[in-house]
Design a protein around this nucleic acid. Structure first.
Lengths: 345, 345
DNA sequence: TTGTAAGCGTTATCAA
DNA sequence: TTGATAACGCTTACAA
């Protein structure tokens, strides 16, 4: 057969296979001579320990499952990156699965992770239904949710790492108000109901604080596609911006950068100049925000840090530490797409 | 303990555990009555088969390892997507690892995959050193390389799915020549030596066919970063385009869309209009190419199809089929960044 | 139709 | 310091 086992080495070395196991695992109860002989033999014979057997025996697979909605969303790309970095360093393998926001697939993914006896799960799926928690309830392993509030049941080890959406929304809207805008629109993404609603509510709250009552036509919570893929989000921005311009807004707060890019493209195609005629602010600080002209002013989310934190929390949890939820802070990134309103009004 | 095993079910059902195994696996040699009882019991007790034990026994982990250079490159994102789709459908899990083009990490990844007894490996790392083949040689599992020629040793099951870079380069350059351009530049990415060199060579060949001898100043094969991440590629385009414009080119063939986006940004910042003053053509058809203004003319690569094909080849190979390498064809996607040269010369 | 037993590759316990 | 032996959870001959 292809693979050499410790029995094969034992035979070759003329010792018992438990001795081989000890020699290979740095067990001190073994003579230098035997250890050396076994180790060279193992190398020569091309021995690779069988992680399946080790996992079966130790009841640890050294594996974590990572669920994301779609890999097409640049947001998740960075989260995955962060997770991967920490996982690699800790010698954990990553089992990747995408849910496409399909409950059936989510179900299947949880089931698969459970079969594989992953030691932990990270869920970075923006549209979490409450079902998720219930599904995860069954399996007895720690779960960290990225960007969704965790509301675990009794004995469940359910945690979350989030970025404060209210703070982010405030940052964005206060920036626009600070520039002198009063008629500020909001373009939402209805397919991410939770974070969208948080950002929308902070938009309303901040306007209210400044004595501004937003007209209903100033905002639209579109629901283009089930999953938040790039094309869909861009289309949201493209489709909605004309209505808002019509309604007379001088600035638009967009749910995410991708929506903002769509908005900017629509402005370009309409001959409306950004930021001279309308200011645009995004959210996320994703790769697209750097390549538009003007560059997009946006709310930076520490995406990679979220991924890293999620994985670190999992590791801490496995090693028995008591851990709690984590909330990171967003920050304002002023680039070229926002400016004081043109004195038209 | 948390997990229920077939023994627990056996005890509860008052049968032997092998009977349980049979009942659960649809073995026909069992009475309807026992089968039903065992199955309900399994459901009630929350039984989930242990994939580690199954894998140990069956010598199949139902897992494939996927190595990519970096998840920051949109090219890989789509490849991963394709792989994932087919894997999911076939009930295979995906173990994801990124190499960052670091030989040490690559080494470690192969080692890890080998320990985990993955049933196959897909390598989508653009900068393959010859070491790779050697490293993979050791492990007896099928390997499919995406976008790199496979040159496997004797008994090795090493395959490849590629897109014809020569054809792609030809498509691009002939498009520019067809528009009337004669002074055509090339911006390469020296950190992807193989595909870069193929595209560059076809650039030279096509020009030669048309009696054009490219000046040395028309092309530059930059090597910005070790890995082909987005920022690095954009910077390549940005840095090199001024020199080429200086050298008098009226059109530029860029190694990939990201480089082309960098080039377009540089043109924008220089006040050089695309395509009026200079035509730009990219390669890949990635997400960025859609959001620039003008939209980027490019060579479409069937990235997702490559991922799908790679995974299908692996599955075929596992099921004992004889398979061969696959070459897909690129296609020209004419958008707004190319036009006939301005009559300056 | 069902039970017994062996084996997959490890680690760990207990004697020797 | 080493060797049997059991156990991890499962599948699969082989017996009954």
């Amino acid at each position: 057969m292809g693979q050499v086992s410790i029995k094969d080495i034992a035979k070759a070395a003329g010792v018992s296979f438990s001795t081989v196991s000890r020699a290979l695992n740095g067990n001190p109860l073994i003579s230098q001579e035997v250890r050396a002989r076994v180790q060279t033999l193992a190398r020569e014979m091309g021995y690779t320990p069988n992680a399946l057997a080790q996992g079966l025996q130790s009841r640890m697979s050294h594996t974590v499952g990572l669920v994301i909605t779609t890999i097409s969303d640049p947001f998740f790309v960075d989260v995955v990156k962060g997770v991967e970095e920490v996982a690699r360093e800790a010698n954990f393998s990553l089992v990747l699965a995408t849910s496409n926001n399909d409950p059936d697939q989510e179900m299947k993914i949880i089931e698969t992770f459970s079969r594989r006896r992953v030691d932990g799960v990270i869920v970075a799926a923006s549209q979490i239904t409450s079902d998720y928690a219930a599904r995860l309830e069954g399996i007895r392993i720690p779960v960290v949710m990225v960007n969704e509030q965790a509301m675990g049941g009794a004995g469940q080890q359910l945690f979350s790492v989030t970025v404060d959406d209210f703070a982010g929304g405030r940052l964005a809207v206060e920036h626009l108000i600070g520039l002198g805008h009063r008629s500020i629109g909001y373009i939402g993404a209805g397919n991410r109901p939770r974070s969208n609603s948080r950002r929308y509510r902070s938009y309303q709250a901040v306007l209210a604080e400044h004595g501004i009552l937003p007209a209903p036509e100033w905002s639209c919570l579109s629901k283009e596609t089930a999953i938040g893929d790039l094309e869909g989000d861009i289309r949201i921005g493209q489709c909605i911006v004309p209505q808002l311009l019509e309604a007379g807004v001088t600035a638009v707060f967009c749910y995410c950068d991708t929506v903002a890019v769509g908005a900017m493209l629509a402005c370009h195609d309409l001959g409306v100049r950004v930021p001279e005629q309308v200011s645009l602010i995004g959210y996320d600080d994703n790769l697209l925000s750097e390549v538009t002209r003007p560059r997009l002013t946006t709310i930076h989310q520490p995406k990679r840090e979220m991924g890293q934190a999620a994985m670190r929390m999992l590791l801490a949890c496995m090693s028995g530490s008591q851990i709690g939820d984590l909330t990171l802070q967003p920050s304002l990134l002023v680039r070229g797409s926002t400016a004081p309103p043109h004195d038209t009004a």
